[in-house]
């Protein structure tokens, strides 16, 4: 066994499966009242795919890949910024109202 590297696929699969379990347990704890913000924030989080797009846009020479990458960055940056911003806006509404507002 010594000297034989583990295929990256196996490492990736390990990470993937464990992350599914983490996601499963964390998300069941989310209160149903916040399921819409949950969806918008997961949307923003899935836009981390922007990392791949940035690599494509600037990882190599200025070729077709760089152009495709730049388009992908622009497309998904809408989520990256918009997803977190709209979640923030929604959660702002869920703040506890101050007592004098309640009467």
């Amino acid at each position: 066994m010594h000297g034989v590297a583990v295929d990256p696929l196996v490492t990736n699969l390990t990470v993937f499966i464990l992350a599914i379990f983490v996601g499963y347990h964390v998300v069941w704890n989310v209160t149903p009242a916040l399921h819409t913000p949950l969806m918008s924030v997961t949307n923003a989080i899935s836009s981390v795919i922007v990392v791949g797009a940035i690599l494509a846009s600037g990882g190599g020479p200025l070729d077709l890949s760089a152009i495709l990458g730049a388009i992908a960055v622009a497309v998904v940056a809408v989520n990256t910024i918009g997803g977190f911003a709209v979640t923030e806006r929604m959660l702002e509404m869920f703040r506890k109202k101050d007592p004098k507002g309640k009467k």
């Binding site: 922007v50 797009a53 940035i54 600037g58 730049a70 806006r89």
Partner: peptide
Amino acid sequence: LAVGALVVGGAIGWVVAK
């Protein structure tokens, strides 16, 4: 390229979110 694209897309996202 990346920064330019990020600014363009991000600005659109920001406006839409608001």
